[in-house]
Amino acid sequence: MSLIDEDQELVAAAINGSANAWEKLVKRYEGKIYNQGLRLMGNSSDAMDLTQEVFLGLYRNLHRFRGDAKFSTWIFRIAHNKAIDLSRRNRFLPSRTQIEMQEEIDALEAVHGASSFEPEKAIGELQQNNQIARILGKLSIEQRLVVELKVFQSLTFEEIAIMQDVSANTVKTRFYAALKKLKAVSEEYYALP
C-alpha cells in the first residue's frame, strides 16, 4: 500500500473516531510541519505553536478531505496559511537576542531529546540550523514561504502560485529576490569579525 493510500485510510479511520489512526497521522507529519515552522518562524516556541495550530486546523477540517488531492499537499497548504496568520499575528520577527536565548534552550532540548546519544553532533546540527533560520529570518514572510516551498518542499513555481493565489511570474520574481537577499545576508554574516 502506498503512503498516499495509507494517508487516506488513516484519515477515514480518524473521521470514524479512531484515536490510533489520528495519532499515526500526526506522527507521520508532525516532524515535517515542526521543521517547516522552525525555518519559517525562526524559533522552536513559534514552530511548536504553528505545529499545534496546523493539527488543530486539520482536525477541525478532517471531514472536508475528499481524497482528490494528496493529503500531504493539503496539510502543507494548511501549514502555509497558518504560518502567514502566525507571522501577521507576531507582526515582527523575533529579535536577534531572542533567537540567541532560544538557541540555548533549543540546544538543551535537542541534546536531551537526541536518540542518537551524540550530543556534539546534535549541537553542531542545531547551530547549523540556527544559522540557516537566522539568514531566512532576514527575508520577508512571502519570500521565506517561496523559498520553503521551492527548496524544502520541492514544489514547482506553478504549484506555489496556486497555493499563494498569485501568478507564476510573481513567484519566480520572489524566489529570485529571495536568493539575492540570502546571498547578501550570507556575505554580511560571514564578513562579521
Binding site: 480518524a14 484515536a19 489520528w22 495519532e23 500526526v26 506522527k27 508532525e30 516532524g31 515535517k32 515542526y34 521543521n35 522552525l38 525555518r39 522552536s44 511548536m48 505545529t51 499545534q52 493539527f55 488543530l56 482536525y59 533549543d106 532540548e109 535537542a110 531529546g113 537526541a114 536518540s115 546540527e125 542545531l126 547549523q128 540550523n129 540557516i132 539568514i135 531566512l136 523559498v147 527548496v151 524544502f152 536568493l179 540570502l182 546571498k183 550570507s186
Partner: peptide, 25 residues
C-alpha cells in the same frame, strides 16, 4: 550556492506534545 547552503538543514526532533489526543478523545 545560496540554495545549496539552505539544503544543509538537518531535521530536528519535535518536542513532546499530546498530539491533540486529549481533544480527539
Amino acid at each position: 550556492r545560496s540554495q545549496s547552503d539552505l539544503s544543509q538543514w538537518q531535521d530536528q526532533q519535535v518536542p513532546h506534545w499530546d498530539r491533540g489526543m486529549e481533544l480527539f478523545r
